[in-house]
Design a protein around this nucleic acid. Structure first.
Ligand SMILES: [Mn+2]
Ligand SMILES: [Mn+2]
Ligand SMILES: [Zn+2]
Ligand SMILES: [Zn+2]
Lengths: 148, 148
DNA sequence: TTTCTAAAGATAATGATTATCCATAAAAAT
DNA sequence: ATTTTTATGGATAATCATTATCTTTAGAAA
């Protein structure tokens, strides 16, 4: 679907243009989120990082993710369950479908959502900057497994 | 809009029917969330509780809110910012509009949302149980105050 | 090279929530 | 009524993700 290589260069360019350095550690993290199909958690990114940089600190992961949030190149997802997840391929708001049993996170889009957003702005007078729309339930796999 | 007294009795009945006791502390908390127009935080509920029960423990607040979640009589809102908020009047999923500056939380509804939910279920095969839809931005008041 | 500063790494601190443990009060049983 | 049982309240410790702090390191610039 997406082109990890292009996405990687895209993020690098944004960071460079804003005067940030592309260090080996950052490059490694960028590769991870650029190639990620799903929505990795901090812990998952941390584990992958340690493959190339065994001495990586969790603090570095958090700092880099915060930086990416600031420059708008990653979308942070935080549900009730502890631990944020990150989307490095679609850094703009979009709907997600989450399985409450296995934790799968799917990307979706919805044209109607833009309309709802405008409707909300009109009705409330708000200047809406972003939104989050999450659907929770059981994925087909977990439905087969039955209740329990 | 809503009738706090009726809402209160409604919650009491659900708790009683499921074999839970209506203690003085619980009754006090129920009154607080039944009459609340907004979406109080744990800390706000805690402060109000201390008016009637100065020795109330935060643990009791959390336990009671967890109980109310379990019986489906309160909706928990958790955004990125630390600290959950609770809606005791509309315990079912519905859209919220949140000001990122002053923290105001508005209730809204959207007919299109039900359709989107069904669309998601159809496209993904998920059995969707609930959702969350939050819009973030600046309320009219905070817009006047200007950037900064 | 030397200097300057961003970034990495280690670790402590924070803060919301949860767990634990005991005291207590409310039902139930006798 | 009295006793028994159990749920609940209250105090406090523990947990866990995230952030802050501090020092070291490394990359860019001079
Ligand atoms: Mn996504
Ligand atoms: Mn609400
Ligand atoms: Zn699943
Ligand atoms: Zn505001």
């Amino acid at each position: 679907m997406a082109d990890p290589q292009y996405r990687l260069e895209q993020i690098i360019k944004v960071l460079r243009d804003k005067g940030h350095r592309i260090t080996p550690q950052r490059l490694a993290l960028l590769k991870i989120i650029a190639k990620s199909e799903g929505h990795p958690s901090v812990e998952q990114i941390y584990e992958q990082m340690k493959a190339d940089f065994p001495t990586t600190s969790l603090a570095t992961i958090y700092k880099t993710l915060t930086l990416l949030k600031e420059v708008g190149e990653v979308l942070e997802l935080n549900f009730a369950t502890a631990g944020s997840h990150y989307d490095g391929n679609k850094p703009y708001p979009h709907p997600h479908v989450i399985c409450t049993r296995c934790g799968q996170i799917l990307d979706r889009k919805s044209v109607a959502l833009a309309e709802i957003s405008q409707e909300m702005a009109r009705l409330t007078g708000y200047e809406i900057t972003h939104h989050q729309l999450n659907f929770f339930g059981l994925c087909p796999e977990c439905q087969k497994a039955g209740p329990g």
